[in-house]
């Protein structure tokens, strides 16, 4: 559980750390769409170049990014494998009835892999360089229009920030309970599947209990300080939009223009 990188913040003072979280969020989401413009080697190369530049600017070492991909690697490889096996066209290397490995399939596999990897890398860049609390502020801001649809936007973002706030605490608690039960002789990751499932109980029950206690404490603390939902609230932290943030969005537009110019006309694969 300590290996999960996605969703962690790395304090720093890189250029990316200074960009307004709203700009980063918009840029990150638009990047996912921009990915779908790419359809040939050159465009993917440009995207990889962009991704690596961002990773470099963030000032976080490459090793940490690679570790972020690791938990998801089987999902990615499975999808890639499906692409490789079930895409026909081009030169065919192996043909087993419905399963063929062709040049188109291989190329498609590489593209799919790139898309996955780049989405993970870029979203990791954002979470590593943005404080979770800033990210929720940004989400809150961007969701404001949905208030017209009577969506409780402020409550949703409060829930989000509370959840984020509790992640490190609960991780800490998990470690403590884990240690306490290991000291009482339990060995995690040993025995049959059923035995292993039984071992989860001594770990999760204490965690549930303490989480419920914590939740109640927090609800009480909020209530005695006068928290009420459905009331307009001012914010202690203010987001400031600067020139650099507009420039960030402009860079994303530029990236899409470059890709549209370089992309092959017409449908290549699929």
């Amino acid at each position: 559980m300590n290996k999960l990188i996605l969703g962690r913040y790395f304090p720093g003072d890189s250029l990316l750390h200074c960009i307004d979280p709203r700009a980063k969020l918009i840029a990150g989401i638009s990047f996912i769409f921009i990915l779908f413009i790419a359809n040939n080697w050159l465009t993917y190369l440009v995207l990889w170049l962009f991704t690596f530049t961002m990773m470099k600017i963030s000032g976080v070492s490459l090793r940490i990014y690679i570790r972020g991909v690791r938990p998801l690697i089987w999902l990615i490889l499975f999808t890639v494998l499906l692409q490789v096996m079930f895409t026909a066209g081009g030169e065919i290397y192996i043909d087993w009835g419905p399963i063929t490995i062709s040049s188109f399939g291989l190329i498609n596999g590489v593209y799919i892999f790139s898309r996955f990897a780049m989405i993970i890398f870029v979203s990791t860049v954002i979470t590593l360089t943005t404080k979770p609390i800033d990210l929720t502020d940004a989400i809150n801001y961007l969701l404001q229009p949905l208030k017209r649809l009577k969506l409780p936007v402020d409550e949703i973002s409060l829930m989000l920030s509370v959840a984020l706030r509790f992640i490190p605490i609960i991780l800490d608690e998990t470690q403590k309970v884990l240690d306490a039960q290991r000291a009482r002789g339990i060995v995690f990751g040993e025995g049959s599947l059923l035995q292993q499932m039984k071992k989860i109980v001594p770990m999760f029950v204490p965690l549930f209990v303490s989480s419920l206690v914590r939740a109640e404490d927090m609800a009480n603390a909020m209530e005695v300080r006068g928290y009420q939902s459905n009331q307009p609230r001012s914010s202690f932290r203010r987001l400031h939009w600067r020139k650099g943030d507009t420039f960030t969005l402009f860079a994303m537009v530029l990236l899409s223009v470059i890709l549209i110019v370089l992309r092959t006309e017409g449908h290549h694969f699929h």
């Binding site: 608690e173 403590k176 309970v177 240690d179 306490a180 039960q181 290991r182 000291a183 009482r184 002789g185 060995v187 109980v201 001594p202 770990m203 029950v205 204490p206 209990v209 303490s210």
Partner: peptide
Amino acid sequence: VKEARRKVGMVFQFPESQLFA
């Protein structure tokens, strides 16, 4: 480690948080 844990009883800070049964 398993051998050692059999011999060493460990009482953590706020040990009541390990109750589960």
